[in-house]
Amino acid sequence: MIARTPPVADPRGGVDFLGPEFLTWLWWRSDVAPGFEHADGSAFFIHVDDHLEFKGERAAARRTVLRAGVPSASSEARAALRSGKTLAAARILLARDDEEVRFTLKAEDLDVASLKLPAPEGDTPADRERALLDLMGQVMDDLDLCLASFLDVRLGSGWDAEAERIRAWGRAPSQDERA
């Protein structure tokens, strides 16, 4: 007898905003304090790269997609944030030592799109495959650490102050506007 997978009523738990808030926080954090450190002391840095996708809160609202030309530093990106749009997807650069990994994080479901891993080292195809699998696991661990760091402040007493810092950052002139 085959057991059917029970359908999950709402995999987002009715809190669609949690992912976009996390990504918006990560964008801000990458600008003001881009470093993260695991419990074992290994550190990595986050940079929001060349693709930003904003979405309005209402279902019928339009999406704004910014590509190329360092959109995270642009006045358009800040304007989208100030107008109440939330960050739905962003291209992330994750740097550890001299290794760089890029991927697009889709906020609502925490999907990792177009993940590009560096050429692996190893003598045999099996060694190289193992290295890539390890690296992929590392990226997921890094992503989890970013989410855990966000939750630490989001679900704690310091969230109101953190949210105000993000709003102030959003109101401040972007790099392009200061140039």
């Binding site: 997609v65 910014l66 360092v70 642009s74 358009e76 304007a79 140039a179």
Partner: peptide, 10 residues
Amino acid sequence: SLGRAPATEE
């Protein structure tokens, strides 16, 4: 908007 603007798509 000033300077080099990114490609924007609505």
